[in-house]
């Protein structure tokens, strides 16, 4: 599976493991999986999610409308 090129350790003073992020950090660096019901468009749902989380932008991976 992996080709090990060099053995290195990481300095704990810098960076942060994804599972150690605060909730605020998680919100800004995460993906959520929404169950889209009929009615609103993918775009509208994506916009609502943006409002719920009060983030500056959201994006969806592949609209359900044009299929």
């Amino acid at each position: 599976m992996w080709l090990f090129k060099s053995d290195e350790e990481t300095d704990e003073n810098y960076g942060k493991r994804p599972d150690q992020r605060t909730i605020e950090e998680k919100i800004k660096n995460s993906v959520i999986i929404v169950d889209k019901h009929s009615g609103p468009t993918s775009h509208e749902i994506t916009d609502w999610v943006k409002k719920i989380f009060k983030v500056s932008k959201t994006g969806h991976s592949g609209t359900l409308e044009r299929n």
């Binding site: 169950d35 994006g59 991976s61």
Partner: peptide
Amino acid sequence: MVTGILPIALENATKAMSVLMGLDKEYV
């Protein structure tokens, strides 16, 4: 109307959109 699962990226995660778009899909 198509329903089902829709991954939505928040804030910084939107930088991964082009890669998230490439995921395989299954439908009924």
